[in-house]
């Protein structure tokens, strides 16, 4: 097991290097640079030179890449070109926890709703309950966030006044250990609508997956055996069936985890949440190369970790799977 994990981590190194190199080259090959203009005004060549020198952009491109990687190894992701005086570390430190809180909460909500809903649908297959659950699930997958978000704000915040319209309940200075939010009333009231918006689609797809794979498992021999042994109903399904049927669910959770945690750009934008989602697009628009690289790296590391966790969870979910 330990060996396996080490091997996976070693495998991640070339992947991450390749990702960084590809991102770097792609970002630099987009025409236009970070310091050509201030607003609409073209900067004089002299001013541009000063800026290029200050940020070492006058070096050959491979040197820049090398310098960045070297710094990144010591967890220094460089300065932001756009937010002067801020470093990428500053930006990540304050935006990542908030995106992660939103993401983890939404994901938990999604699991909390998705797995029971899927289970019920599977157990009561082809009953009205199943159809309703399936229909709602598919509807959930099909409504885009950019429609659901403004709709929820309008109904629950502006009309009913139950929740604040926007923003996040805590800021990065109030976090415990730089990550955990105080679970105050204020926090939840701000978190509720974005959580629902983001969680709906995920809970729906989890429900569908759970239903489908549980239906397969229910027909496996060992389930028949269990039933034959006189075990009944829900207990069998939950104890024996559900655990096995969660493997496909776990498979999608990895990428889902990375995607959801690093910010659902649209939800953060609509609700004015200061997460890292907007940096994925803004950094490209601003040609803020270190921020592009920093956010990409965070995303990639999460993806690697997510996939690893998924593979490890297979072993827990299905004891027949072994790693060595």
């Amino acid at each position: 097991m330990g060996k396996y994990i080490i091997r996976r981590f070693l495998w991640a190194i070339p992947v991450l290097l390749a990702i960084i190199t590809a991102t770097f080259l792609l970002a630099h090959s987009i025409p236009g640079g970070p310091f050509d203009y201030a607003g609409e005004k073209q900067l004089p060549e002299s001013v541009r030179q000063n800026l290029m020198r200050k940020y070492r952009l006058d070096e050959p491109i491979y040197v820049q890449l090398g310098l960045w990687i070297w710094d990144a190894l010591r967890f220094d992701f460089g300065p932001s070109y756009y937010s002067r005086g801020q470093t990428v570390n500053d930006i990540l430190r304050r935006t990542f926890p908030i995106s992660a809180q939103l993401g983890i909460l939404s994901l938990l909500l999604a699991l909390l709703i998705g797995i029971p809903a899927g289970t019920i649908a599977a157990v009561k297959q082809n009953t009205p309950l199943d159809y309703t659950a399936t229909f709602v699930a598919i509807l959930g997958v099909s409504i885009p966030n950019m429609v659901l978000g403004p709709l929820l704000i309008w109904i629950f915040s502006v009309h009913l006044g139950w929740f604040p319209a926007a923003r996040w309940g805590v800021d990065y200075t109030q976090l415990y250990l730089g990550f955990f939010p105080p679970l105050t009333h204020k926090f939840w009231s701000h978190a509720f609508l974005p959580m629902i918006t983001l969680g709906t689609a995920y809970s729906a797809s989890i429900a569908r997956l759970t239903r489908a794979s549980l239906l397969q498992v229910i027909r496996e021999d060992y389930m028949r055996t269990a039933k034959a042994k006189g075990l009944h109903g829900f207990r069998v399904i939950v104890v024996h069936g559900l655990r096995n049927s969660l493997i496909p669910v776990a498979t999608v959770l990895g990428p889902m985890f990375a995607g959801i945690v690093t910010g659902s750009l649209i939800v953060e934008r609509i609700f004015g949440i200061p997460g890292m989602g907007r940096y994925f697009v803004d950094s490209i628009t601003n040609r803020d190369y270190p921020v592009i690289l920093g956010t990409t790296l965070v995303y990639s590391v999460l993806l690697v970790l997510g996939n690893l966790l998924v593979d490890l969870s297979y072993a827990w979910l299905d004891p027949r799977i072994r790693y060595d």
Partner: peptide
């Protein structure tokens, strides 16, 4: 000072007396 980007959200906050 808040830093909300979306004008429609800003507008909703205004209507909410925020």
């Amino acid at each position: 000072f808040t830093m909300v980007q979306e004008t429609s959200t800003e507008f909703a906050m205004y209507l909410n007396n925020e």
